[in-house]
Design a protein around this nucleic acid. Structure first.
Lengths: 207, 207
DNA sequence: TAGATTGTTAATCGATTAACAATC
DNA sequence: TAGATTGTTAATCGATTAACAATC
């Protein structure tokens, strides 16, 4: 699929939401679903649903709706979830362990291939069947396994260093949980998950 | 401060970012800062910085810039971070423990007052000086301590049940990490942190 | 006064919503 | 044919950017 125009960021987030909603429905033997049913299920307008989907092609039938299974497959393909993605995780503290045991990842075709830490106490142990390896071997192994996505759950002080290692090993996207600004070359896709910001939106809203 | 017009959601997120940037600067003895310096520091346009700030009042001096300390205090007050917020956390698995040890919360005036779990093995233990209590006591204690913010880090199956308990106990805002849609009354502020969505944005972007 | 930078208005841009022709 | 629902266009809404008068 070649998309040569700009897709709004919001559309991609919503497609991800639609996708999980459709996944949850499938087992009930439903075969057809309308944009307004999806809209109701996830809390957006039906026009929004149709617009988001129609950006990528004509997947529905006028007067009828969308075939559930087809639509599900199409959206998975749009999101790139029709093939497996290998992921490397650096920093096996509490947050790293939490992510390593997170079942939704595997369900959605993300394969946590290897995890790293620098604590000799942790190296060699297994979390969820994945061995914790020494960061000394990070570059070698991530390169060798051609991993394209890295997750950084180390303390802020070493986050940049670990990021550099991941980039040298060839990852293209980095999900950063350390509360610090990372410097990455423009071709690397960086997303920061800031847990503090969520609470600050609350204090603003309910103060 | 009474704000009687609508504040864009993006503005609040950016104020939170400006605030942490200003906090990081203070020690260097800088007294004045311009919108373009802030803009450069956090990666937005200077017009955006001025617009965001000016929504709440005239905090700068034309021809000069903003007084660093004053601006810092004003933004903290806007975000409601000039007073302490008590927070209750339900579910002391890996993610709960990770959040309980997260230092930025305390730094930003969020006080993790109590944590709950239903595992007898965990109840009574301490994480970061905070005792883990039985969920049976949740309603009683959250009510008594007048806690207004709840964080849900339990498995999806019990997330709604724990949410109901928190709401009955009087919390006004809920931060949900369980990958499930929660039903809450309209007056409750709900935010969902979806860890899977971040990876799906990657697979879309780099596929 | 000349230089700098805010606060604000107007212009631009982009995203959402409404409406409806096309079509099953 | 009548009823339903998509795909798409046009209208609306909101947020960002550009520009500049006000002011130190």
């Amino acid at each position: 699929m070649f998309i040569h125009f700009k897709i709004p960021g919001g559309t991609v987030v919503r497609l991800s939401v639609y996708s999980r909603y459709l996944n949850g429905l499938k087992r009930n033997g439903v075969h057809t679903i309308s944009s307004s049913e999806i809209a109701k299920g996830v809390g957006v307008s039906s026009a929004q649903v149709r617009k988001d989907i129609a950006l990528f092609g004509e997947f529905g039938t006028r007067g009828v709706g969308y075939n559930l299974e087809d639509l599900d497959k199409e959206i998975l393909a749009i999101l790139g979830l029709d093939s497996t993605w290998n992921v490397a995780l650096v920093g096996m503290g509490h947050l790293g362990c939490a992510l390593a045991s997170y079942k939704s990842f595997k369900q959605r075709n993300f394969n946590l291939t290897c995890t790293f830490d620098n604590d000799p106490q942790k190296i060699g142990k297994k979390i969820n069947d994945i061995e914790i390896l020494s960061v000394e071997r990070l570059e070698e192994i991530v390169t060798q396994k051609q991993i394209r996505i890295g997750v950084v759950t180390v303390p802020s002080e070493v986050a940049q260093e670990m990021t550099n290692l991941l980039i040298r090993a060839g990852v293209q996207a980095i999900l950063n949980f350390a509360p610090t600004r990372l410097d990455v070359p423009p071709e690397i896709v960086l997303r920061n998950v800031d847990l503090a910001v969520n609470l600050e939106l609350f204090s603003f809203n309910i103060k």
